[in-house]
Amino acid sequence: MAEDEPQWWYNSRTGQTERGMLSNAIDRVGPFATEEEAKRAPEKLRENSQRWAAEEAADNDWGKH
């Protein structure tokens, strides 16, 4: 992707992808290199959230020993 090309974002309020920073920052997730990556944003956020929760639980269990 060229430096001056707009990147893709996922709008968490509307559920739509956007090319460039069109929405308010609070509603945008990204940037992504492609529209397809931006469309996967909700899935990626769920995966990250689950992974972080598991890591936090493991850290808490480790501290009990």
Rank of each mutant, 00 (worst) to 15 (best):
W62D: 09
S49Y: 09
P31R: 03
G30I: 12
K44S: 04
R13E: 00
H65A: 07
D61L: 11
P6Y: 05
E37F: 02
E47F: 09
N11P: 12
G15Q: 12
R13C: 01
M21L: 06
R19V: 11
M1E: 10
T17K: 02
N24L: 11
Q50C: 04
P31A: 04
D4M: 12
A2M: 10
A57M: 15
D4N: 14
R28W: 01
A38F: 03
T14D: 12
E18V: 07
E3S: 14
G63P: 02
R19Y: 12
M21K: 15
R46E: 07
M21E: 12
R19S: 13
L45K: 08
E37D: 09
T17Q: 01
N60R: 15
A54M: 03
E37S: 12
T34W: 02
P42D: 05
E18Y: 08
S23A: 13
Q7R: 15
A25I: 06
A41C: 13
G20D: 11
R46L: 15
A53G: 01
K44D: 06
A38W: 12
H65Y: 05
N24T: 08
T17E: 08
A33K: 06
V29G: 03
S12W: 02
N11A: 10
E43D: 10
E35Q: 13
A57R: 15
E35N: 00
E36V: 07
V29D: 04
A41I: 02
N48R: 05
A54F: 03
W9A: 02
S23F: 03
E36H: 03
V29T: 00
D59C: 03
T14F: 00
M1I: 08
A53W: 03
Q16C: 08
D61I: 05
L22A: 05
T17M: 01
R46K: 13
E18Q: 13
P31L: 03
G63W: 09
A57G: 12
E5K: 15
P6G: 05
R51T: 09
E35K: 10
S12C: 03
R40L: 10
A38E: 01
P6W: 09
G63I: 09
Y10L: 01
Y10A: 00
R13D: 11
E35C: 04
S12I: 04
I26S: 11
F32G: 05
A25L: 07
R40W: 05
D27I: 00
Q7Y: 14
Q50R: 06
E55M: 13
E36R: 06
D61M: 09
